[in-house]
Design a binder for these strands. Structure first.
Lengths: 219, 219
DNA sequence: GCAATAGTACACCCATCGGTGCATTAGTAC
DNA sequence: GTACTAATGCACCGATGGGTGTACTATTGC
């Protein structure tokens, strides 16, 4: 009756068979969840797609819900990596104003990525069933990015480039000027008429321009 | 075998029993769908809540999907009414700048309303299952409001109050400065820590201020 | 009061799906 | 090679849920 692995750390010893099964199941489940949602994904589907027996899924993950949570954990980690990179980019920049434009483009590209949009749809749609997960995602992904941006705004204000009073508000203004409308639209329109990379970049630029008109320190 | 009513217009003759059943079922279904989503709502639930037999639901609506679509149609109508009112408000205004502030407050209040947020969650979550419905909602509700706003922006520009180049872009900037961040957050956080009416109003005001700094005609 | 129609209760069908048990096979560590 | 453990296949359970058929009762229009 093989069940939970011995209670060890993250990189504990793993039978290569288990390691492989874990990986292949997670990949299949991730795909399926992102495309068809939680209820739209059956464990049989996942097992078939991963070319693994259903029993193996249950031996390793215990339940559909735990499998789902593991997938989201991985997504959280990705989001946090992005936030960290963005933070570094902004803090280490020579020309901070320039860095803002770079950040805007990166932010747009990331947030409009198909997988991220699907993840948002998934979590928003399941917010009632998994309130903690949705909230946690908000806190650790968009919320965290907002915090990092706010820190940057304060820095820019100290250096006299910007003049922001409420940094959190300003960073939200920044982000939503840049990607608010296309993101909102993308959430509702699946697989269709997504703005091109060029258009998104143009939007990022106009967004930054509007932001700077509103928040640049006139000296 | 009572089935579809005779193929007549919208306000065709209806047996009062049918009218009552329709209304009470729609109300119950609406509540349940908005709170638990499409798959989270069973026809038995709806029938029980409406104090009506399951058979009646099927006699009148034919299928769960058709029931769902009727409910969304009603929601679309509500959204369009809001858009129309907002349009009138902006077009008939004496002081257009002032009207923008009013519009901002109204927009925030409407979009952050619990039922609307739930409707958005529902449609976004089911965008994969009902792509046309989600797209239609976007077009007829937020999209339409954006168009009306854009018309107003053009008018304001002609009157020399604003200076906008791309009116659609400017109206999106306006809307998302005002309610982008709180809406995004609300989508992920269910029943919790929603900003107060006062806070939302303050946000609307700061949003308009930022917008005017960015877009007011400096003459 | 009467015919027509709507509503009800209830039993039922069938598919799906999360999850389990188990006997058998295959891969792994030493 | 041997002892162990993971993986498989498959039958199975129980619950849920969309949808139907039907015999019976309650309303409604006239």
């Amino acid at each position: 009756m093989p069940q939970a692995p011995p209670p060890a750390g993250d990189d504990a010893w793993l039978d290569p068979r288990v390691a492989r099964s874990r990986a292949v199941i997670l990949a299949a489940a991730s795909e399926h969840f992102l495309h068809h949602g939680y209820v739209g994904t059956s464990v049989d589907d996942v097992a078939a797609r991963a070319r693994v027996s259903k029993r193996t899924v249950y031996n390793i993950f215990g339940s559909k819900e735990r499998l789902f949570r593991e997938i989201l954990d991985a997504a959280f980690a990705t989001a946090e990596r992005f936030a960290r990179q963005t933070a570094a980019l902004l803090i280490d920049a020579d020309d901070l104003e320039d860095a803002l434009v770079t950040a805007a483009v990166r932010l747009t590209r990331t947030v409009m990525d198909d997988r991220i949009v699907r993840l948002r749809r998934l979590l928003i749609g399941e917010a009632e069933r998994f309130p903690e997960l949705a909230r946690e995602y908000y806190r650790r992904a968009p919320g965290h990015v907002m915090e990092v941006l706010a820190d940057t705004m304060r820095l820019l204000t100290e250096r006299g480039v910007l003049r922001v009073d409420d940094a959190r508000l300003a960073s939200e203004h920044f982000a939503f000027l840049v990607m608010g409308a296309p993101l909102d639209r993308a959430l509702f329109t699946v697989d269709d008429s997504r703005p091109s990379a060029d258009e998104l970049e143009a939007r990022a630029t106009s967004g930054v321009e509007a932001f700077l008109r509103a928040y640049r320190d006139p000296r």
